[in-house]
Design a protein around this nucleic acid. Structure first.
Length: 437
RNA sequence: GGUGGGGUUCCCGAGUGGUCAAAGGGAACAGACUGUAAAUCUGUCGGCCAAGCCUUCGGAGGUUCAAAUCCUCCCCCCACCA
């Protein structure tokens, strides 16, 4: 999708500002000039602490994608070297140190996921690994060349270390050192690629500024930094966390159906903000629906969920997730007047193939199965006690029929299936389809 | 190394021999109200073959009719001192 409307031809920094990505920048005038020329490099570092990104990473990834759409060249730096140390910024606890094998594995996973957002062909985006230069570093030369530029007095005052300095756990030296390494990364990228912009979450401010200063001192060049706000939901929770933990981009960990559901359940108050941050829909179209509220907002949420899912999992998976949502929660037509750029299906179409689903052999039902056992078996309930409670509280449904507590011991036989399938429901939102095989 | 204080159920945090599956809060789950929203109210919130039984209070032993609570050893954390 090319830039349309007022974002076309706009300075990348202004695009990011307009969409709510920018919390703070270093010397913004010069930064604007830097981004005024196409083909500029900019980078963000990713810790290879896991093999999958999650929604908490999305702001940074989307920022890179916008950079690319504005004609610049984003770089994703995978911290194969620093990942062996662990960034203490803003963290209350020390990180688990990673082994080289795990780092390699995670790195591969990250690249795959980044490819959904960035076009890595023809050098339009670059993936680098700081292990390439960090692992060969010699301690004494490093201390002399880099360490001498850092003031411990200043580092101790850095906001990013504060939590740990004040905590009971304290801060180990290896972690205190982290800032030097990240600053050195920036210096290397500046020298090697001419990359003079580093971006990151607000907790990276200290590390970014350290790099900007190192580039100035060692290379006598001006480098820049942008930090993004920490995205909280209106209810005050860190974005991307749910009761079940993180919302992952890896479809094995968070299915496209659940991913879609995560977005469709966005708080009313967050919809506008999230559309700007987490979709590529043009600003004009987002602003056009700003006045909608109540039930009408649900349509907007559907577009948000659809677009967000399509970016990560592709159009087909988004169609399925959307169709499954229509099947269980009821569909609604989406007027061509809103979000004309979106490719969301405008007509109601239901599609159960995207639903959470278990296949169970028919013979398991030949002598019947209790509702309690069935709910546990497909993971809708954590234990039989939980399943009993669910039924007693009136939250269990089979094929749309509530199981009342008197019939808690009802046995389900093969005749419960309609056309070889049956649908369980737990509470208001959790559906699970069972196919007999 | 010394001295003192700690490690409790998802999290925080009460609990110092039986009345403890363990107060209170948070999270979570269910119901009502709704719009697959928020807020609010109500209920639930270790497991099981469920008026009973089993497992849990850092780990391993021990005392006792009875231990989260007492004793011994060990592991880990914190504070102050060296």
């Amino acid at each position: 999708m090319d830039r349309v409307g007022k974002e076309a031809g706009m300075n990348a920094l202004d695009v990011l500002r307009l969409r709510g990505f920018v919390e703070s920048t270093t010397h913004e005038k010069e930064l604007e000039d830097y981004l005024g020329t196409p083909g500029r490099y900019c980078y963000i570092g990713f810790d290879p602490t896991g093999s999958s990104l999650h929604v908490g990473h999305l702001v940074t990834v989307m920022a890179l994608a916008h950079m690319q759409r504005c004609g610049h060249r984003p770089m994703a730096l995978v911290g194969g070297g620093t990942g062996m140390i662990g960034d203490p910024s803003g963290k209350t606890e020390m990180r688990q140190l990673l082994t080289p094998e795990i780092v390699a594995e995670n790195k591969a996973g990250l690249k795959g996921q980044l490819s959904s957002f960035l076009d890595f062909s023809e050098g339009k985006a670059v993936l680098v690994d700081n292990a390439d230069w960090l692992s060969e570093l010699q301690y004494i030369p490093f201390l002399r060349d880099v360490g001498c530029h850092f003031s411990v007095n200043r580092m101790v005052k850095a906001e990013s270390y504060r939590a740990r300095l004040e905590s009971e756990e304290g801060l180990s030296f290896i972690e205190f050192n982290y800032m030097l390494l990240q600053a050195y990364d920036f210096y290397v990228l500046a020298e090697k690629y001419g990359c003079f912009l580093q971006m990151g979450g607000r907790d990276q401010w200290g590390n970014i500024v350290a790099g900007v200063e190192l580039v100035r001192r060692k290379a006598q060049k001006t480098a820049f930094g942008i930090t993004f706000p920490l995205i909280m939901t209106s209810s005050g929770i860190k974005m991307g966390k749910t009761h079940a933990g993180a919302v992952w981009l890896d479809p094995e960990r968070t299915s496209p159906y659940d991913y879609y559901q995560f977005w469709v359940n966005t708080d009313d108050a967050d919809v506008q903000r999230f559309l700007k941050l987490f979709t590529f829909l043009p600003m004009e179209e987002i602003e056009a629906v700003a006045g909608l509220d109540g039930k009408d907002l649900n349509t907007v949420k559907a577009v948000l969920a659809y677009e967000a899912t399509a970016i990560v999992h592709g159009k087909e998976a988004a169609d399925q997730a959307h169709g499954a949502a229509s099947a269980v929660f009821g569909g609604r037509e989406i007027s061509a007047a809103i979000f004309p750029s979106s490719v969301i299906p405008r007509q109601v179409m239901t599609d159960v193939s995207g639903m959470p689903c278990s296949r169970i052999p028919g013979q398991d039902f030949s002598s019947g199965m209790t509702v309690v056992d069935l709910f546990c078996r497909v993971g809708l309930c954590a234990s039989k006690g939980a399943a009993r409670r669910l039924i007693e509280q009136g939250g269990a449904y089979v094929n749309g029929k509530r199981i009342d507590s008197d019939s808690i011991d009802v046995i389900l036989g093969p005749d419960t299936f309609e056309e070889g399938a049956l649908v369980l429901r737990s509470g208001k939102k959790q559906y699970h389809r069972i196919e007999m095989v």
